[in-house]
Write a protein that binds this DNA or RNA. Structure first.
Lengths: 105, 105
DNA sequence: ATCGTTCATCGTAAATATACGATGGAACAA
DNA sequence: TTGTTCCATCGTATATTTACGATGAACGAT
């Protein structure tokens, strides 16, 4: 790729792209859905619901955590993940704004 | 990656992920903005507004066209791109639905 | 103290994405 | 025809993503 040009854009554009990137794999879409449908949200439960190995699921969780869409709490030997509503709302609002700005033609 | 597992998810999840992927680079976010701010939307205009080479801009345009968010019309030796409102609305609605479904904790 | 469970991280392989120069086709002008 | 402009595509280099097995740390139970 030679050198990435990503930081030659605005912070808002970069942030929106990062949020979109975190949603750009069906496994991560599904993880968000499952996290919300289940009472408990341990990694093992997610692994059961996904056609992926445990290591891969952990990797996807890390990406969602990095952009702040989910957070995880240590609970004994387990880790309980859940959706981070505050960041989710922020993302939704920003995407809405983008779509509204763009919409026309 | 060994073999991709993407098609072991639902069509809806795959489609949403593809839409998100098309928004996952700041250049493509900016392209959508510029397409809407300008009257004319030739590739040359976009290249002027972006810190990227013409070949790279064409590549980004192709990705947005592939998911249907924009369309291009040949206009003499030029090509005029514009946002595809119908698909944009469809994407916005689906993302809203996803965010509303997920939101809780 | 030892064992089993849970999960993050490391190492690695393969697939994709990003970026650009170069090339060539299509359309218009001279 | 010849030349010019506009843009898509090819070829290529490098970076990043995706996927997994293996390992080990942390904890609870025995």
């Amino acid at each position: 790729m030679a050198v990435s040009k990503k930081n030659e854009f605005t912070q808002e554009e970069i942030w929106l792209a990062d949020i979109a990137k975190s949603l750009s794999h069906p496994a991560r879409i599904k993880i968000l859905k499952v996290l919300n449908e289940m009472d408990r949200c341990m990694v093992g439960n997610l692994v059961d619901q996904l056609p992926l190995a445990q290591a891969t699921v952990s990797q996807h969780l890390k990406e969602l955590k990095n952009v702040g869409l989910i957070s995880g709490e240590i609970d004994g030997p387990k880790v309980c993940y859940c959706v981070n509503n505050k960041e989710l709302t922020k993302a939704k609002t920003a995407l809405d704004k983008l779509f509204n700005k763009i919409g026309c033609c």
